[in-house]
Design a protein around this nucleic acid. Structure first.
Length: 473
DNA sequence: TGAAATGTTGGGGCG
DNA sequence: ACGCCCCAACATTTC
């Protein structure tokens, strides 16, 4: 009778979970374990999510006669203790890809192997792991399209493995989930359950709903925040409640079905590609969360005005689309992708606030907060990232509003004090008398000119520095 | 996965 | 009838 621990991390599901599958296939006794690592940080919104996701995972396990063991502290110490007290033979996990996690897991693997414990790790989260994709000169890709083309080449999906074996569990102590106090004390997340069902069932439900109702118009509708036309799978993917392979299998065969819109399918799958590209960039450039990918931005004179930052966070900038987005974020833990780009452009280029401050806020408030995706996307918008939008691509919050929320439905949903404003004036409420809504905290046109001016100075500096380097050589 | 400034064209009003 | 100007509409360039 061999005993194995399955250490769950960002793979809070049983379906299509290679570590769980292999452990169950190879052992008679299996201990599912989740460790709340005191060294890793978790945003407030994600704490809420994690609580419910662990509950859901435990329910899935119970259906298989197992129960989730919860422990809090240093993962290596906890694993060593369990291995000793329960006489464990093997430890299984699915790999994580953030720099600190990689370092932690490497150390754990080495230590356990030294003690004669079998350790098996698997790919449970990605279509292509970061080290498998290289360009022709052996370096990592810095541009998305060639990267994604290379990924697609390497991709071959296999049918999902069905678990035949049902191992038994082992009685052991577990923390009480409620005592982890993951749920917010103030009830600001009270509306989250209206929008989200953490756990693998909720994830599958979102996928089915997306395929049935939105996939076919994805390409056309994905940019309109009032359309609700995106998959909303991001938080489920972050916590590994669904695997990208499950999504791929559900969708790729529809390419052959003439009643499905091929460009929409390709476009949606490429969004999975962007997710992986972010993980890939973080793997090959571990400083991505705090250092500009493009060095020349190190000299950028960010202003970081605290009052302006606060207005942005609260959704009180006076620009309806921006405020709608920031309030959607606060209320639901989510923001539509198009609006994320607009609010991020507004923060970095309009208010001249460092992208890292925006990234911090997103990490704390988004249920889908993901270090790789968040860092890569903020750098993309700020212009300092790999394959980034050029700095001078500055969104005009009014035009974006007119273009992507023409009837103001999204704005009226999230900015109730503007709900009664009729017609096009919803986009420019300062032209309406007696509206209880803040005036714009900056003038967009002036801010745009200022941002371009700062950028020009940056370029000048960059040229000078290059010149000096040249002279030194 | 922009926006604004600038350039070009062509139809129509009008002297 | 003709040339001139205006300006919308579209294209190109620039930031």
């Amino acid at each position: 009778m061999t005993k194995a621990i399955v250490w769950f991390r960002q793979d809070l599901r049983l379906r299509d979970n290679p570590a769980f599958f292999e452990a169950c296939s190879n052992h008679d006794l299996v201990i599912p374990l989740y460790i709340l690592d005191k060294n890793s940080t978790l945003g407030e919104a994600q704490s809420w999510w994690l609580h419910h996701s662990l509950k859901a995972l435990n329910n899935s396990l119970k259906n298989r006669g197992l129960s989730l063991v919860l422990r809090q502290g240093n993962p290596l110490e906890i694993l060593l203790e369990l291995i000793k007290t329960l006489s464990i033979d093997s430890v299984y996990w699915n790999r994580c890809y953030e720099p600190l996690t990689i370092a932690r897991d490497k150390k754990i693997k080495t230590t356990l192997l030294e003690q004669g414990i079998e350790v098996e790790s698997f790919n449970g989260s990605l279509l292509n792991e970061p080290w498998t994709i290289k360009n022709k000169s052996g370096d990592f890709f810095k541009v998305f399209t060639p990267y994604w083309n290379a990924c697609k080449q390497a991709l071959s999906s296999q049918p999902e493995k069905q678990l035949a074996h049902r191992p038994a569990g082992v009685e052991t102590d577990s923390d009480d989930l409620l005592e982890w106090k993951l749920l917010p004390t103030l009830n600001w997340a009270s509306q989250f359950p209206d929008y989200w069902t953490p756990g693998e069932e909720g994830a599958q439900e979102k996928l089915n709903q997306f395929i049935d109702q939105h996939l076919n118009n994805y390409k056309n509708n994905r940019d309109f925040p009032a359309e609700n036309a995106t998959s909303h799978l991001s938080p489920h993917l972050h916590f590994g409640e669904i695997s990208p392979w499950t999504i791929l299998r559900a969708i790729e065969h529809l390419k052959l079905n003439p009643s499905y819109n091929l460009p929409s399918i390709e476009r949606f799958l490429s969004e999975l590609g962007w997710r992986e590209f972010s993980v890939y960039l973080l793997y090959h450039f571990p400083k991505l969360p705090f250092e500009n990918f493009k060095k020349e931005f190190d000299a950028f004179p960010w202003q970081n005005d605290k009052q302006l930052l606060l207005s942005w966070q609260k959704g009180l900038t006076g620009y309806p689309l921006i405020d709608a987005g920031m309030r959607e974020l606060w209320t639901t833990g989510y923001m539509h992708n198009r609006v994320r780009m607009v609010v991020a452009s507004f923060l970095t280029k309009g208010l001249l606030i460092d992208w890292r401050l925006g990234a911090d806020w997103f990490l704390d408030t988004l249920v889908d907060a993901d270090l790789a995706n968040n860092s890569a996307s903020w750098q993309w918008v700020a212009g300092c990232g790999a394959d980034a939008a050029p700095y001078f691509r500055i969104f005009n919050p009014i035009l974006q509003s007119l273009k992507f929320d023409p009837d103001g439905l999204y704005i009226r949903q999230w900015v109730p004090e503007l709900a009664h404003v009729k017609g096009q004036q919803i986009h420019t409420p300062w032209e309406v008398p007696l509206v209880n809504y803040p005036s714009p905290i900056i003038n967009h046109n002036e801010a745009r000119t200022r941002a371009l001016d700062y950028y020009k100075q940056l370029k000048k500096k960059d040229v000078n520095e290059d010149g000096e380097n040249f002279e030194q050589i």
